[in-house]
Design a protein around this nucleic acid. Structure first.
Lengths: 338, 338
DNA sequence: TTTTAGCACTCAAACAGTTCAAGTGCTAAG
DNA sequence: CTTAGCACTTGAACTGTTTGAGTGCTAAAA
């Protein structure tokens, strides 16, 4: 009870909490001296700590951990917040990416923290079509479509010697052989048998192979979105510019961030301070949740805030958001697959 | 001479400069008392100011202005810097946008400030082709190409009732009527005669018209790039998070930034502190330069740093960079137009 | 055995006072 | 017109003091 009160108090005020204030707040009547004894015991267990020898207590990482694992009850979400989520997610989006991107924005707006969102897993997505669209004398656009509706494109220049027939032959070759295969297999094929076969139509296929490979990796890449980058400036209490820079740099590297997010699990995960793999994040906490978009796989949303964050509210919010998003995506795919 | 020395000193040290240190530094032999008298006169003229009654002097905005207009000599650029610029700009870029984007990056890296770059003006660019590429049952990609090689695309969903023939007819209509026209005229036509004519082929053209309009505005938009956003954290001496946020928000609004950059002129322009239209920028200075990409119009590069910046070095750098970039673009277009 | 009152002690934060160095302006002499 | 000399000002760095919120410990009360 005391630990719970300390966490609740400290996360909302930011000031170490002392025995007297705590005693006044507890539901039963006890004196501050009693609270002090209990606090000494909690400190012994490593759940709380002092900032200096005569200060009030703050939760330790271990304390937060215990709180999150055993004590916290997610706040029921406010009707208002639900409305905001619902209305921001509705609307006729053109692409699924926009829904995911908006998700990160909403979540960061609601919390004033920084939010991340990851598309439903697409390592499993399959090639459903490849096109080359001639645009001008020398420009060609390569377009790749996957079976869950992702579209990637890129323009490139060709030497004018290449004819339309040649391009068409190449497209046909690729489509005949590779449609329906998962993107990683396609990428493998691109490195083995395809180059051989393509020389039947193109003398110097290197340029083309590079473009095709680029578009392919683009499509296969775990694309994730960040919302509320700037909020970091407010909730970080670091004054070290270099530290902030590293954080921003970290956020821009999707592979590093994938490490940070870790393995997705079905329930909402909370990683606290030094529990995070990355040292730069030692003063922050991360709430991660997966969402299921029907049989289109699982995606991830995450929220990065200060270690001292009001977990009950945030966990409640992330939980509610994940549900709304899942529902929205199921609707989306229903329409799309129809 | 004294003003020049004060500016040089202050921009490199950041500390108000006093009479004694200044006297020691001047090329001729004068006492600190003499310098004090001169400084009093400069202060009378409003060119320098004190931070408190017994402090050394710092240049005022008016002082910087005089310095930049009459005293500064651009530093000759280091051979090393030229190498960096040249090597970063070379390489086989796929799109002109990438050259422009890289420009902002290089410039910010070289200076540790924040850099902006703007494509050669494209209000004048003309429509050279419009395509609709069917991607799947319901997905279509709209592609727009301009005569200077810009490509914009967007995917959208259609109702399956629309046939390939209908789409082709629409594309033909647009291309027949609008190819060769400047983008703003195309946009006008889109609001007047086109909708009428298009109803011959499509019953409900609204969705299509919207997509076409979107792609068009995307292409017509002054697209500009920002490099070294994060550097702002280092060179800003503001501790006010909200101020930083407004600055970042400003940078993300291309129209507001266009205001800030102002009218392009042929020589290098320097705007100092409160001379800037935007109040948020009162502690910063902006160096703007245009570059000419042959007959493909003029573009702009700009550098945002603290008011207290080493102008001679920065002006030299921007000047050299503008030349390199112009040369690079001329080469690019020569290849592209060929 | 648990709770409580009481007390001595600790510490950060806020404040006031001191010293120091780097400046200034002014005056009178060179 | 330049300079030496001097009185004066100021921020920064520092020291010491006070205050209040907190602690741990002890001995008495429940």
């Amino acid at each position: 009870m005391i630990l719970k009160a300390i966490v609740r108090d400290y996360t909302s005020s930011g000031v170490p909490v002392g025995s007297k204030a705590l005693a006044a707040q507890l539901p039963m009547h006890v004196s501050s001296a009693t609270v002090r004894n209990e606090m000494a015991a909690l400190e012994e267990l490593g759940l709380i700590a002092k900032t200096h020898s005569s200060s009030g207590r703050i939760p330790s990482v271990k304390g937060y951990r215990y709180y999150v694992d055993h004590l916290v009850q997610p706040d029921p979400i406010k009707a208002n917040d639900i409305d905001i989520i619902k209305s921001s997610l509705e609307g006729q989006f053109l692409k699924i990416d926009e829904i995911i991107e908006t998700s990160a924005k909403i979540l960061s707006n609601l919390t004033s923290y920084t939010a991340f969102s990851l598309k439903p897993e697409h390592k499993q997505s399959r090639l459903s079509g490849f096109r080359l669209v001639p645009l001008g004398k020398r420009q060609v656009m390569a377009v790749l479509v996957t079976d869950n509706g992702d579209v990637e494109s890129q323009t490139f220049n060709i030497t004018p010697k290449i004819t339309g027939d040649q391009l068409e032959a190449v497209v046909r070759l690729i489509n005949d052989q590779l449609i329906g295969k998962p993107l990683d297999e396609v990428l493998d094929a691109l490195k083995s048998e395809i180059p051989m076969q393509i020389t039947n139509y193109l003398q110097q296929p290197e340029g083309f192979l590079k473009v095709f490979g680029d578009v392919l990796t683009q499509a296969a890449q775990e694309r994730f979105y960040v919302g509320g980058r700037l909020n970091l400036l407010s909730f970080s209490d670091s004054n070290d510019v270099d530290e902030l820079k590293s954080l921003y740099t970290l956020m821009d590297h999707s592979d590093d961030m994938a490490d940070v997010l870790g393995q997705p699990s079905d329930h909402i995960q909370v990683k606290i301070g030094s529990e995070m793999t990355n040292d730069i994040l030692k003063d922050y906490s991360l709430i991660t949740a997966t969402y299921e978009a029907g049989d289109h796989g699982k995606g991830v949303i995450a929220l990065l805030g200060p270690t001292r964050m009001p977990y009950s509210r945030m966990i409640g919010l992330v939980g509610a958001f994940r549900q709304e998003l899942a529902q929205r995506l199921i609707d989306y795919y229903r329409y799309f697959d129809q």
